[in-house]
Nucleic acid binder design. Sequence first.
RNA 1: CUGGGUGUGGCGCAGUUGGUAGCGCGCAGCGUUCGGGACGCUGAGGCCGUCGGUUCAAGUCCGAUCACCCAGACCA
Length: 412
Amino acid sequence: MKLSQSFVKTLRDAPKDETAKSAKFLVRAGFVHKELAGVYTFLPLGLITLKKIENIIREEMNALGSPEIQMTALQNPAPWQATKRWESERMDIWFKTELSAGGELGLGPTHEEPGTAMMKDYIKSYKDLPASFYQFQTKFRNELRAKSGIMRTREFLMKDLYSFNVDQAAHDEFYHKVERAYKNVYDRVGLGDCTFETFASGGAFSKYSHEFQTILDVGEDTIYYNHDKSVVLNEEVLNDEILADLGVKRDELESCQAAEVGNIFSLGYKFSEPLDLSFSDKDGKKQLVYMGSYGIGVSRVMGVIAEKFADDKGLVWPETVAPFKYYLVAIGEKAGKLAAEWESKYSDLFLYDDRANRPGEKFADSELMGLPFRIVISDKTLDNDSLEQTNRKTGETKLLTIKDFLGILTHV
RNA sequence: CUGGGUGUGGCGCAGUUGGUAGCGCGCAGCGUUCGGGACGCUGAGGCCGUCGGUUCAAGUCCGAUCACCCAGACCA
């Protein structure tokens, strides 16, 4: 892609209303554009990054054998009324609106209710189970206070998965598969080393749930862990009961800040009962469906990655989620022609800085945008049939021959 | 929602005791530059968040309101 077509106008100074390091860089580097507090447009570079994360999650969800669908943002109040979650006193994050013809609608903050209600049409018999589906969808939450750039917003992209099983044993088996899939996701986006499955409150649904928490200074949650981090729990469940359940003592736990990047819940009959999602078992007896729900905030994960790896010069994207692998800088006329050629041939790999700016600015911007490698070709290097490759993370620079480099490209 | 703070060209900021707005960056043109955010000259761009008040006169004083930020609370 050509930088001139990427809506990138890098800023020397971050707008003063951004505080989080990640938000400052994401705005300065032209990944996102702020519309309102907690409401962001994803510009070309930001959207490509978001889609890369989305695709990693999609692959892992597909590997579970779960199909992808897309539900609606607009919500029918009826199923929410059935579960007593329509009233704003019970769910204070609703964005509600109304139909011109009369009647109220909501903008979905999550999708347990419509998902459960919908499945009444597809689950009739034990033969229809197990079932599950997932989606990527824009969620709306009327947060009292948005903050930290794209890590806590009022409109955000979420992957949510819902599972339907005949009983708890069948559910538990699927739940463990999702746990493993989530670990794969965090490994693949580069957060594996610093993300831990954490005991958390089950809220209204169950005794405990599991969250995936990424250790992060500016994270909103406090987590506690034992020496080898084999036991990690959220502060909200730090009590004698769970300490006994987990077999750890309070004084052997340390704490740190962390950001929640995913959660998995055993819902049990919490939704199937009020919405009457049931099936006929082998004896023709009616049974309630045992449910689970599993979420990953895709845009928040992007924010956490940005926050986690940024250094004082800018963003540092892991290769798996970077919008492009190479930031291409050409110095000189001959080099410019070659760069344009590479960009048109491998447009998914190169972000070609085709601006008329001086090299120094391009170098600084390449560091701000944080692509894994910067490639510099100049008429000088071309005379030696070579180019310069700089690793964004380590700063290490090496010379490669054009031939070797093109060889690497064709193997990507 | 409670408490605190901020709104002045695209971004960051200054603006004295009220007298009709300025700087840096960015942007446009010309020229010199061209491997680490160059330099010179010229130029464009602002109802000072909004509404109302006080005053001969308001960016500046008063009131209201909106937006944004921080801390807390909240957070399937």
